[in-house]
């Protein structure tokens, strides 16, 4: 009788420590999640608040919703221009990067030619050597020479030139496309170029989606390069540059709600894509590291 009682008690205490451990674990996980989300929640909710509410009263939920912040940011604070510039730069960069990287990955994976090793080494080395902002100066001089320093094409070309990450993501996927397919297509009358267009590109689509997402994310978020190239051309500024300038602007303190709305505009596209395709974002990181 006594024995069973102690036994029940020990089972009870075991259950108790277990559920206690589970509770601690979940408190930790939820706290970490709240910390991760806090700034994002604050910027999304803050973009609907008035300036007074943002700077004066400690609320989390807006007391009234001011959609007019977006209208004001869009019209008066030049965010329509910044957004269009950002879209232009990111879309062209993504397409260009995918094209350049997929072409060379195709050639390197399918043909053996002299200098292939050296080329691969060159691509890898660009990922590791960094002398920081120093490279921006000769890059800028080159664009002045080409007459592209007063357009966004200068920024785009330099962003495309940094396609090594995309190249390594793509070449990792190439192994999964059997060579027999190329050969069969060749027998059916395809040449090197039509195999690329009709066989490789369609089969590479999942990899292109992942690498393209990475290229888009990178160019959409890029700050230093467009900052340097648009210092004397405010009309060419992208969202991160235009937004960061508000911080230094005269009377920046009085425009917190505009900064919030602008920040929201710039994180919203990525946030929306992320809700539907967060696994693809993670694949970008993993693919880039494995390469």
């Amino acid at each position: 009788m006594n024995n069973t009682r102690t036994h029940t008690r020990s089972v009870m205490s075991q259950l108790l420590t277990r559920s206690l451990g589970k509770a601690v674990l979940w408190i930790f996980l939820i706290a970490a999640a709240l910390l991760a989300l806090f700034p994002i929640i604050m910027v999304v909710l803050g973009s609907f608040k008035t300036n007074q509410e943002l700077t004066g009263s400690a609320t989390i939920w807006p007391s009234s919703w001011h959609f007019s912040n977006y209208l004001e940011a869009w019209k008066n604070a030049n965010f329509s221009r910044y957004t269009l510039n950002s879209i232009f730069v990111s879309v062209v960069t993504t397409v260009g990067t995918l094209l350049v990287a997929s072409m060379s990955a195709y050639a390197v994976n399918r043909v053996s030619f002299i200098g292939k090793k050296a080329y691969s080494l060159l691509m890898a080395s660009t990922l590791f050597i960094s002398i920081g902002a120093v490279v921006l100066r000769p890059q800028f001089d080159l664009m002045v020479m080409l007459g592209l320093n007063k357009t966004l094409w200068g920024v785009i070309i330099i962003l495309i030139s940094a396609h090594a990450t995309c190249y390594f993501i793509l070449i990792g996927f190439f192994q999964s496309i059997p060579r027999d397919l190329d050969e069969a297509a060749m027998i059916d009358g395809c040449n090197f170029y039509s195999v690329y267009l009709r066989i490789i590109l369609p089969l590479l689509r999942p990899a292109l989606a992942v690498a393209g997402l990475g290229a888009f994310q990178g160019s959409w978020n890029e700050y230093i390069l467009p900052l340097v190239f648009t210092m004397s051309n405010p009309q060419l500024q992208t969202l991160p540059v235009g937004l960061a300038n508000l911080r230094y602007g005269i009377g920046a303190a009085s425009e917190v709600q505009l900064m919030m709305a602008g920040a929201c505009l710039s994180i919203l596209p990525l946030l929306v894509v992320y809700v539907f395709a967060n696994k693809s974002f993670m694949q970008v990181t993993l693919g880039a590291v494995k390469g």
Partner: peptide, 28 residues
Amino acid sequence: QKKIHAYVFVFPSLFLTLVFGIYPLLWA
């Protein structure tokens, strides 16, 4: 012929990397 095609396909990547990636290093 295939090798020539391959060079054509690698060229844009190589050119951009040399001009905007390597030249700035040599400049510095």
